[in-house]
Each structure stands twice: as structure tokens, then as C-alpha cells.
Simulated assay, not measured.
Amino acid sequence: MGLQLGTTGAGIQLARTLTSDGRLVARVGASYFAYDRVFRVKAGEGKLNITPDLVMGIALASVKWHPFKRNQLFLTGGAGYTWRPDVKANVIAEGNVKFGGLQISQENVGVVNASLRWNSVLGYAGLGYGRSTPIRRLGFAVELGCYYLGSPKVDLQYTGFLETTTIDEQIPVIQRNMENYRFLPSLQFLLTYGLFRK
């Protein structure tokens, strides 16, 4: 069993060796991260209050391969699932705000809800150093990997002055510009404990 902490949050793993020499390991795990703290951006005399809605929950099944018998370097690949494959943000004004010399009242700014949504099923590949099933009771591992998310879809909903603009025509352009944001890097630190020993 392992406890992990990294860029995709905190999580837990279960692993089992598939071969007698311990070079092939199957594992399953899940990690979770959430952030929704409001931050404020000054815009003229007023402010824009931006509330992110970021929840990153990933369940992953993968296989690790140690190519060298006496070296703890490993390669890994697998597939994952996320039940919240999106990033959302809510924007509202506080006081009169100014955009490029144009001053807009708080009421006319309205509300903006924006989101990027990826696929729920993810691919994963990575490399690292350490063992998921330690030789002794305790072990440590570090892993650098990357999730493949697919191209994001852009959704923008709004009220207020944006309704008088042609921003809807720009959404396909924004989505094309976001096509390369298909990958999520991951750095994980893992503390393992051997449950069963002969």
C-alpha cells in the first residue's frame, strides 16, 4: 500500500508484483485535489472577483516495469478515469470596472461562467525511481508522468455587456487555440508499506 502526494493531489495506491523477480508490478490507485478560493483582480476603480472551481479526482490502473533487475528505475503505463474532467471559473464585478478605457458599472458587467472540459477516460505514461512493493516494510518512490486528456471543449455563458458583443463568434477560435492543451504533467512522491511478507 502506498500514500502519494503530488501535483494531482493526495491519494492512495495498492500494488502487487506479477512476477517472482518483482520487475513487473500491477497497481491501482486514486488521487484527489480541489481548489475554489476566490481571488480578486483590480480593474480601474473596481475589482473582478474570480472564483475557480477546480476538482481533480483521478482513478488509475497501471503496470510498472523495472527493466533492470538490480535497479529501481521503472517505466509505467496505464489508463485512468476522472469524474470531473473540467475546469470552471465564475467572474463577477465589485464596483465599477474599466476595460481599455471603457468604464462599466457593476450591474452591466453581469456574470461570466467559463469552463474547459476534457475526456473522462485518460491515458497515462511515466517513469520513476523506487518500488511500489518495497523489499523491506517501508519504501519511497518518485514518479514523473503525463496524462493524455484529449482536446478541451470551451463553454462560455454570460450576462451583461458581453451580450452586446460578438464574443460567440470567437469561441471556435478560442477552442482551436486550446487544442494543444491535451496533456497534464504529474509529479508524485510515494511512501509505501509492505502489507504481506513471507
Rank of each mutant, 00 (worst) to 15 (best):
D168A: 15
G80T: 01
A59I: 05
G29Q: 05
D53Q: 13
Y181H: 11
Y124T: 02
E45R: 14
I92N: 04
L60I: 08
F140E: 02
Y124E: 00
A59F: 13
G46R: 11
A93L: 04
F33I: 03
V41F: 06
Y193L: 10
R23D: 09
A34W: 13
G130S: 06
F99S: 04
Q170W: 15
I92F: 04
R70A: 06
N71Y: 09
A125R: 03
D155W: 12
I12Q: 01
G95P: 01
L102S: 12
A89R: 03
I167E: 02
I50E: 02
P134T: 06
R16S: 12
N49I: 07
S151R: 07
T17D: 03
L127N: 12
Y193H: 11
G126M: 00
Y35T: 08
N90G: 09
R131I: 10
E169M: 10
I167D: 02
N177M: 11
Y81G: 01
K98V: 15
G139L: 06
S115C: 13
S151K: 08
V173N: 07
K198S: 05
P152I: 11
L138T: 12
M178A: 15
I92D: 02
M178R: 03
V173T: 14
P85N: 00
N96P: 04
T165E: 04
Y181D: 07
L138H: 10
K64F: 12
F74D: 02
F189A: 12
T76K: 03
V142S: 10
L14M: 13
D168C: 15
I92R: 01
G2V: 05
L187Y: 04
I12D: 01
V41D: 13
Y193V: 14
M56H: 03
P185V: 05
V87G: 08
A34F: 14
I104C: 01
R84C: 07
K69W: 03
L149K: 11
K64M: 14
Q157N: 15
L122P: 05
G130H: 04
L187N: 06
N119I: 01
N96Y: 09
G139Y: 05
V87A: 14
P134N: 08
S31C: 07
F33S: 06
R182D: 07
G80D: 00
Q188F: 07
Q103L: 11
M56G: 01
P172S: 03
E179K: 11
N96S: 10
N108G: 00
Q103D: 15
F99T: 04
L127P: 10
L187S: 05
I135W: 10
N96E: 10
K42R: 15
L54R: 11
N90H: 15
L162D: 02
A89P: 06
L73N: 05
V97M: 01
N71I: 09
G77D: 00
K88C: 07
G22Q: 08
G194P: 04
F140Y: 07
E163V: 05
D155L: 11
D53P: 03
V121T: 14
Y158T: 00
I171V: 13
Q157P: 09
L156E: 01
R27Y: 13
L191S: 00
T133H: 08
Q13N: 14
L18S: 01
R176T: 11
L60P: 11
F99W: 04
L54W: 13
Y124F: 08
I174K: 03
A141I: 05
A125P: 06
L75A: 09
R131G: 05
G160Y: 08
Y35L: 04
